[in-house]
Design a protein around this nucleic acid. Structure first.
Length: 435
RNA sequence: GGCGGGGUAGCUCAGUUGGUUAGAGCGUCGGAUUCAUAACCCGGAGGUCAUGAGUUCAAUUCUCAUCCCCGCUACCA
């Protein structure tokens, strides 16, 4: 199945703009992607490298509320922070943009509108929990109640952290709002769903038949979803932060963050192409473009099932990814990296505390990349790899070449000669030339 | 709970379409050298390939069960 591709469209998962980027993100997604892109460019390939911040969704609004600022303030803060740290780190993006951009809102809205008009969605009205005090519908994780299984009175609407059981908000005893504490009421609400099951045959053929070479974690996860049977997936939410649903009777509704985020790859391509006078469609609608999504293992279903279904539903020549390399996670000092517990090495802090040491981090994260299983980052390992591998071995190698070049060749690189002949002729002096 | 991925030397990872002594880097131990930076170079030790059972002439590699780690679980249970 070797195809001849004329150009490469490489995307990296959009970091969520409610916190900075840490070494786990770097190890799994950004360093491998940047390395691949640099390799392609060195080979002279035509490459477009797309990144950006994912700025919609409930967590941003919660954080804003907590701090008494607007959601825009939150995403402005973290977008700038992430963007700058990527720049300082040396990510070679063609563009690093954001999903609050005008062009993205327009692109995402148009995307939804086309599918809507063509009848690609199904509408469903369901009863949802509503916080009367804040006047908003709540997603499962912002509903708190008593766990019916273990009696924990701080169980979430999707899961009880104490006994680990998976829950639905309906099961909770005395459900109330995690935001206001108010007692919840039920209200009817309408949403649009993408009927994924309609694409099952196509997905099977495309991935299970056509891409057996994908990583086992990715392939296995996809197969499991397909074998389990796909269901319609809601693509809208009751929320006031996001891309408004471009339909008449949809006040107070936005596109589900996971619907709009991957469209960000398209919007950002448009943005850079407009700036360069390039044609964005050649990147997204040509069979000879090779698209690769770099992601973490938590994003497999979105990039292998949902987003491809969206593209397929839209039609109009959109291509789907040729590969979706999803990496595992990185632990820090034997403990899970956690934003909420502030257990992480933040990129912006690393860059401050270790100025000029970007390549050391790149090296360590590459040498220890979590390709097939979760890996562990320790400062001791970082120190050892730096001191032994980079400094002692590699550093000495470079230093020796420089010193000997000056000593024996007056500082100029000597002409190429036949090494085998030379080795055969002498033994002593060649032991140094050999290297 | 269900499903997916993983559990191989002190550490981080390769590998095995089943087949005699399971690999690498770093660490460690020993040696050599002072030609290159506090280096480099050479050699050794170190693993019941998570656990138990099964298939086989032969299993770390296949099958089943168990344990542990991580992810997903779609408003389906």
């Amino acid at each position: 199945m070797e195809k001849n591709f004329k150009r490469y469209l490489i995307t990296t998962a959009l970091p969520y703009a409610n916190g900075p980027v840490h070494i786990g993100h770097l190890a799994g997604v950004y360093v491998p992607a940047d390395t691949y892109v640099r390799y392609l460019r060195m080979k002279g390939e035509d490459v477009l490298f797309i990144g950006g911040s994912d700025e919609h969704g409930v967590p941003v609004t919660i954080k804003a509320e907590k701090e008494g600022v607007t959601p825009q303030d939150i995403v402005d803060r973290y977008h700038e922070m992430i963007k700058k740290s990527f720049e300082d780190f040396g990510m070679s993006y063609d563009i690093y943009s954001r999903t609050t951009s005008k062009i993205h809102h327009a692109t995402a809205a148009e995307f939804f509108e086309k599918l809507y008009k063509e009848g690609k969605f199904i509408e469903r009205e369901t009863e949802q929990f509503f916080d009367p005090e804040r006047n908003k519908f709540l997603s499962d994780r912002y509903i708190i109640g008593t766990c019916p299984k273990c009696g924990n009175d701080r169980a979430y609407g999707d899961q009880c952290e104490k006994c680990g059981s998976t829950l639905s908000p309906e099961e909770l005893i005395d459900p109330h709002s995690a935001i206001s504490g108010a007692k919840l009421v039920k209200k009817m609400t309408k949403h649009w769903y993408l009927p994924l099951e309609q694409y099952e045959t196509w997905l099977r053929q495309w991935i299970l038949e056509g891409h057996k070479e994908w990583k086992t974690n990715v392939y296995g996860q996809v197969k499991s979803w397909l074998d389990g049977g796909l269901q319609p997936r809601a693509v809208t939410r009751d929320l006031d932060w996001g891309v408004p649903v471009p339909v008449k009777d949809a006040q107070g509704k936005v596109l589900y963050v996971w619907f709009d985020a991957p469209i960000g790859y398209i919007s950002n391509t448009k943005e850079i192409c407009e700036k360069r006078g390039d044609n964005w469609e050649k990147w997204w609608k040509s069979e000879d473009t090779k698209m690769v999504h770099f992601i973490g293992k938590d994003n497999i279903v979105f990039h292998c099932i949902i987003f491809p279904c969206m593209l397929k539903a839209y039609g109009d020549g959109f291509i789907v990814p040729e590969n979706v390399p999803a990496n595992e996670f990185l632990n820090l000092e034997n403990d899970k990296i956690s934003t909420s517990r502030n257990w992480a090495v933040w990129l912006h802090e690393y860059l401050q505390e270790f100025p000029g040491k970007q390549d050391i981090l790149r090296y360590v994260l590459t040498a220890n990349a979590p390709e097939t299983k979760d890996n562990n980052f320790t400062w001791k390992d970082y120190q050892d790899r730096n001191n032994n591998e980079l400094l002692a071995i590699f550093g000495n190698f470079v230093n020796r070449i420089l010193v000997l070049t000056h000593k024996y060749y007056e500082g100029a690189v000597p002409a190429l000669e036949n090494l085998n002949e030379r080795l055969a002729n002498s033994s002593k002096t060649t032991s140094s030339a050999k290297e």
